[in-house]
Simulated scan of single mutants.
Amino acid sequence: MSKNISLEVCPIAKSLSVFGDAWSILILRDAHSGFTRFDQFRKSLGIAPTMLTKRLSVLVDEGLLEKRKYSEHPPREEYVLTQTGKDSLPVLFVIGAWGRKHKSFENREKMPIFLDTEKGTEIKPIVIDQVTGAEIGTRAIHQHVE
């Protein structure tokens, strides 16, 4: 079986190796909300400890989280966002904005909103092409491989 070259060089496919798992996305969401401790993630997500350990390990291996020791006796570690992990925040916001727009929710009034700390206004993300200034999704696209 030959390998699909487009999967090897496609940034979307490569990113899915990290983001393609719902638990990983939710762990990153909680890390951006200030969670660092194993028990905080476990309580928030209701995830099995073995599954959480695996997902945290992948996020550390991929460079999105960093383990830091916060207690010697007993030995305890916390998980802190790296710059790579911090760079995932816009991705999470765009996924959330898509879900808010296209998925139905039983209790929309209880849905959390995210506020800009300086302005106090709700954050409503869009993705803009840096070169043209156009909102992504408003113009046709095509792939080009050099």
Rank of each mutant, 00 (worst) to 15 (best):
S2R: 15
S2Q: 14
S2D: 11
I5L: 14
I5C: 08
I5V: 13
S6R: 12
S6G: 05
L7I: 02
C10I: 08
C10M: 05
I12T: 11
I12S: 06
S15P: 02
S17Q: 12
S17W: 11
S17N: 14
D21S: 12
D21E: 12
D21V: 13
W23C: 12
W23P: 05
S24D: 08
S24N: 10
S24M: 13
I25Q: 10
L26T: 03
I27A: 01
I27C: 02
L28F: 04
L28S: 04
R29T: 08
A31Q: 00
H32A: 08
S33C: 14
S33P: 01
G34M: 08
F38Y: 07
D39Y: 09
S44N: 14
L45E: 10
L45A: 06
A48D: 13
A48C: 09
P49V: 07
T50N: 11
T53Q: 13
T53S: 14
T53R: 14
R55P: 01
L56E: 01
V58I: 15
V58F: 11
V58W: 02
L59G: 01
V60S: 05
D61M: 05
G63Q: 07
L64F: 08
L64C: 06
L65C: 01
L65F: 04
K67P: 00
R68S: 07
R68T: 12
S71W: 00
H73E: 12
R76W: 01
V80R: 10
V80K: 05
V80M: 07
L81E: 00
L81Q: 00
L81V: 06
Q83H: 08
G85S: 01
D87M: 05
L89S: 05
P90Q: 04
P90Y: 06
L92P: 06
G99I: 04
R100N: 07
K101H: 09
K101R: 15
H102L: 12
H102V: 03
S104F: 09
F105M: 09
E106M: 11
N107C: 09
R108Y: 07
E109G: 07
E109Y: 07
K110Q: 13
K110G: 07
M111S: 09
P112D: 09
I113C: 06
F114C: 04
T117P: 11
T117F: 12
K119A: 08
T121Y: 02
T121Q: 13
E122T: 10
K124G: 03
I126E: 14
V127I: 14
V127L: 15
V127D: 04
I128V: 15
D129F: 05
Q130C: 10
V131T: 15
G133C: 01
A134H: 11
E135I: 13
E135G: 00
I136K: 03
I136F: 05
I136M: 06
I136L: 10
G137F: 04
T138G: 03
R139Q: 11
R139K: 15
A140Y: 14
I141S: 10
H142S: 14
H142G: 02
V145N: 03
V145P: 00
E146F: 12
